[in-house]
Amino acid sequence: MSKLDVFSKLAEQKIQEAIKNGELNNLPGKGKPLNLTDSRHIPPDLRMAYKVLKNSGMIPAEMEIKKEIALLEQLIAQCTGEQEKGELKHKLQEKAIVYSLLMEKRRSK
């Protein structure tokens, strides 16, 4: 078992214990939707550009590819024909490679 697995199990145990003890019952924002437009994961110098793109209906290339990957995964899960499933898996691998290359390029900047 890796250190990450041990940490994950310990964290999950602590969370379950806090739920059981009612420590998470009165958190701010309880019952409200999550803010999925949070931009903390976007580098500060790119946030305004991303916001402009989002408001204009455009999304970054890596996000578009992630959407395509998710769609391909859904299609593979529902596919019954082996030949078609193989073709979809091939497309999925291609998209995963393109995504990896885009992310590597972004990290190297």
Results as ranks from 00 to 15, higher is better:
residue 49 A to E: 12
residue 70 A to T: 15
residue 23 E to P: 02
residue 84 E to N: 11
residue 25 N to P: 02
residue 42 I to V: 11
residue 59 I to E: 06
residue 92 L to K: 04
residue 13 Q to R: 14
residue 50 Y to E: 09
residue 82 E to F: 12
residue 14 K to I: 09
residue 13 Q to I: 12
residue 87 E to A: 07
residue 90 H to E: 12
residue 86 G to R: 05
residue 82 E to D: 15
residue 51 K to G: 02
residue 83 Q to N: 14
residue 51 K to C: 03
residue 36 L to S: 01
residue 31 G to I: 05
residue 78 Q to G: 08
residue 37 T to E: 14
residue 74 Q to T: 13
residue 92 L to G: 00
residue 29 G to A: 01
residue 5 D to E: 03
residue 8 S to G: 02
residue 80 T to K: 12
residue 101 L to G: 00
residue 95 K to R: 14
residue 79 C to M: 06
residue 105 K to T: 14
residue 34 L to Q: 04
residue 45 D to E: 13
residue 10 L to N: 09
residue 61 A to I: 14
residue 36 L to C: 05
residue 83 Q to W: 11
residue 60 P to D: 01
residue 22 G to L: 02
residue 8 S to P: 01
residue 20 K to F: 01
residue 14 K to Q: 05
residue 4 L to G: 03
residue 96 A to D: 07
residue 57 G to R: 04
residue 66 K to P: 04
residue 21 N to E: 13
residue 71 L to F: 09
residue 16 Q to E: 11
residue 83 Q to K: 13
residue 19 I to Q: 03
residue 88 L to N: 03
residue 55 N to P: 11
residue 44 P to N: 02
residue 32 K to G: 00
residue 31 G to A: 01
residue 63 M to L: 14
residue 64 E to R: 10
residue 89 K to Q: 15
residue 36 L to A: 01
residue 90 H to C: 07
residue 109 K to E: 12
residue 92 L to Y: 05
residue 92 L to W: 04
residue 42 I to F: 00
residue 14 K to R: 09
residue 88 L to E: 04
residue 65 I to H: 02
residue 89 K to Y: 00
residue 76 I to V: 15
residue 97 I to R: 08
residue 47 R to H: 06
residue 44 P to R: 03
residue 45 D to C: 08
residue 72 L to N: 04
residue 53 L to M: 14
residue 34 L to F: 08
residue 8 S to H: 05
